[in-house]
Design a protein around this nucleic acid. Structure first.
Lengths: 249, 249
DNA sequence: CGAGGTTAGCGTAGTTCTTACACCTAATTT
DNA sequence: AAATTAGGTGTAAGAACTACGCTAACCTCG
């Protein structure tokens, strides 16, 4: 059974987990499948990789076909290759994740989809998705919550001009923990990764906040020097856990 | 050109980056290729994935065929799929890395290899390897140095009974930075992840050290509670860098 | 136009964590 | 018994983290 040719009866695809942030909720872009298998179920946008196409290129293509946007943060997370994950043959899939600003574009249904919609991540993970997409979504979500502590990926999810409170809310929803306003501001500002635009919010029914911009150049400088970005306030919890573990002894 | 069948004229392989630790050096297991392409060059051990075989299974199979060992730490890192990475066709490869104790076994050359040897990582990265294995090795090495800060992967590289100094040397070589003996011991012991065996080293020409064992159960407990393992002493450097960056402004 | 409502923005003190640092001890070798 | 080698231990200064509450600025509605 292991003639060389058998090895070449397989295919690979990319699947994109596209996260967006909107009105305080972390969302993911899903398509409703228009074809069998899993017709009518929600799925991650993905496609087979063309024979002469690099993996990253394929991932960008899928994202662009679906949303019309380019030049976004896109990163490989994990490859899923269970033998029976695709009902029509041996297809392994390389999962990417991406972070976009929901306000930047309106996704349009591609040929292979009936419908495209933003879904709240928590809900989507719990509902039944096509293929093994529940696991893929969960894995990418874990990767996101982990990486957000290391790199300022969060800035990708906000409009170019944002307020500190918006930034804090974003982090709170990514980290799933409440942050102290003053400590958060102190920490973020001390990194000098934000540019104060000397502009104010407009049209809000309260005191308007200052607008900031992410300083990408500065970040790249720091990154090159091994700088590690960290936003968290969970030391206390860890300590409690450690203590609990000691008592368990 | 995009008939469905074209998509299935591709194959995938796994490649293992097997790290070992020995006499103060971090090493990687390489094979000398016995067949074309790249005959005679050193390469990472890997193989095509069987049509009815899961990816992880394939990685474990390659490791076992080559070294005879099972039950080791093995983890997927990244998938490489440049169109021209394999001269004979479209083959993407899923890279895994693994950590083993060099003393535990003697690798034996498999059918597809002339020779199997441990190479010092620094040297191997610089020399010319088969395929895109230089990039794969570099990527896995980066992943290792990153993950070693988060999980106690280092323990996998030591014999079951080890001294604190051995553990410290291991971390120093993984992190590429010198650690303070007293601070290192304080930190490691405060995690209560080690079991004091109440045994002493034997046959050493100096005061013998206590032997310890890694407490795997405790670690799994802590991990389940979201405990994060960290061994580093580089805050000072970061601070200097941050300062330098501010001055650059 | 004034009162009430809403979010912005700011500083400090207590605590914990991190770092730097030096000497004596226990075993072996000569 | 003297020399060699690595093992093992504590403390003090500085940095980072956490908790916490009030005034300021703007809008809206009556």
């Amino acid at each position: 059974m292991n003639g060389e040719n058998n090895f070449f009866k397989s295919a690979f695809s990319v699947d994109n987990v596209i996260f967006g942030f909107d009105e305080g909720d972390l969302k993911v872009l899903l398509i409703k499948r228009g074809n069998e298998p899993y017709k009518g179920l929600w799925a991650l946008p993905g496609d087979l990789v063309y024979p002469n196409e690099d993996l990253d290129t394929a991932a960008y293509r899928v994202l662009e076909e679906l949303t019309g946007i380019k030049n976004v943060y896109l990163e490989q997370v994990h490859t899923f290759g269970a033998v029976d994950r695709h009902p029509l043959g041996r297809v392994i899939t390389i999962a990417y994740y991406s972070l976009v600003k929901i306000s930047d574009f309106t996704p349009k249904a591609a040929s292979f989809a009936q419908n495209v919609e933003w879904h709240i991540v928590d809900t989507a993970i719990k509902s039944k998705l096509a293929f093994d997409h529940n696991i893929i979504l969960q894995t990418c979500f874990n990767a996101l919550t982990h990486r957000v502590r290391i790199r300022p990926v969060g800035f990708e999810l906000l409009p170019p001009k944002f307020t500190l409170t918006e930034l804090q809310h974003l982090y709170e929803s990514l980290l799933r923990e409440e942050l102290d306003k003053r400590n958060f501001r102190k920490k973020i500002l001390s990194m000098s990764l934000l540019i104060d635009l000397n502009e104010l919010q407009e049209g809000v029914p309260h005191r308007p906040a200052k607008l900031y911009q992410f300083n990408k150049e500065r970040y790249q400088q720091l990154e090159a020097q091994g700088f590690s970005f960290e936003v968290k306030e969970s030391k206390k919890k860890e300590k409690k856990q450690r203590l609990a573990a000691l008592i368990l002894q």
